[in-house]
Simulated scan of single mutants.
Amino acid sequence: MTKLNSAYWQNRYETQSTGWDVGSITAPLKTYLDQIEDKSIRILIPGGGNSYEFEYLITHGFTNVNVLDFAQQPLLNIQNRLPEVNPKQLIHADFFEHKATYDLIIEQTFYCALDPSLRDQYVQHMHGLLAKGGKLIGLLFQFPLTESGPPFGGSKEEYILRFSPYFNIKTLETAYNSIPPRQGNELFFIFIKK
């Protein structure tokens, strides 16, 4: 199996082998984010890549947003698109070593990109990064778990089993407004830290 380290992801961005990158914020996330009134909440987008979600939030008045990625290139891409952004908001680090506290964490193709052996650690670390009552929201793929990836699949049953010890599952349902190639294969979710 390919070692999914920083060099692997850097190479994917340098060679533009980024089939998951749709070039803009996706409708399920935009719809959710448009409902947030407090634009000062602490937000993290881990494994954010080119993070059009970050760009959307910044250009819509959110003041406390950070994107984290293992690879440097996507963070440079964001900096080039948004030169006014404080570089401290673009965190080049290993997610599992990141320490901070957030009110909202946005999941967008990060969970499915991790080696499946790291999924329990992912859930626990997400829980640890959220403030009391904080929310983990976003999209998770629903297609069978495969040996080849990323992306690696998952199911509603697996997510309930993994996340429910740490989160109250408020929403976990097939996204009605996915982009056509992902129609029926994405679950929109809102999990609230226990």
Rank of each mutant, 00 (worst) to 15 (best):
F189K: 09
Q124E: 15
K99D: 12
L33P: 03
F163G: 00
Q89A: 15
N185D: 14
P87T: 05
I169T: 07
G133E: 02
H98N: 08
L140P: 06
F62G: 07
F191Y: 05
R12G: 04
L172I: 03
L82N: 04
E158Q: 14
L57W: 06
N185H: 13
T109K: 01
A27G: 00
Y176A: 15
V123I: 14
F163P: 01
S24C: 12
T31G: 01
C112M: 08
M126L: 13
D21Y: 00
G49F: 07
D38F: 08
K156G: 02
Y111D: 03
P46S: 08
E157S: 13
V85I: 14
G154I: 00
F54N: 03
T2C: 06
H98C: 11
F110Q: 06
D115W: 01
Q79W: 02
P74K: 01
L90R: 06
W9H: 00
Q16R: 14
Q72R: 12
Q35E: 14
Y159G: 05
V65L: 05
G184T: 04
Y52P: 05
Y56W: 15
P74Q: 01
E84R: 10
A175M: 09
I105K: 05
L129I: 04
S17G: 10
Q16W: 01
N80W: 00
E55S: 14
A131S: 15
I179T: 11
L140D: 06
Q73V: 13
K3P: 00
L104K: 00
N168W: 05
L33N: 09
S155M: 09
S178V: 11
I45L: 12
L140T: 07
T174I: 15
T18F: 06
G153Q: 08
T171I: 13
R182L: 15
H92P: 08
D103S: 13
P87N: 03
G19V: 00
E84N: 11
L75P: 03
R12A: 14
F188S: 12
S17F: 03
I169H: 06
G49C: 07
W9P: 04
L136N: 05
F141W: 04
L82Q: 09
Q72D: 08
K3Q: 14
R162L: 15
T109C: 13
G61R: 08
S155G: 08
L76Q: 14
C112Q: 09
H98G: 05
I160R: 10
Y166T: 09
Q72M: 10
Q73W: 00
Y32R: 12
Q89D: 12
K170Q: 13
G138N: 09
A100K: 05
E107F: 06
Y13W: 11
F70T: 07
P144C: 11
L129F: 02
S40P: 00
I43P: 09
E173K: 15
L161G: 04
L187S: 08
E55T: 13
I25G: 09
R12W: 07
Y8G: 13
L161Y: 13
Q89N: 15
L75M: 07
L145G: 03
L187M: 12
R42S: 15
I179H: 09
Q79C: 03
L139T: 10
Q16M: 11
G138P: 00
P165R: 03
G19P: 05
Q89T: 02
L4T: 02
W9A: 01
E14W: 04
T59K: 15
E37S: 13
G19M: 03
V65Y: 00
M126H: 10
H98T: 12
N50G: 15
K132Y: 08
P151C: 11
E186S: 11
I169C: 04
F152D: 04
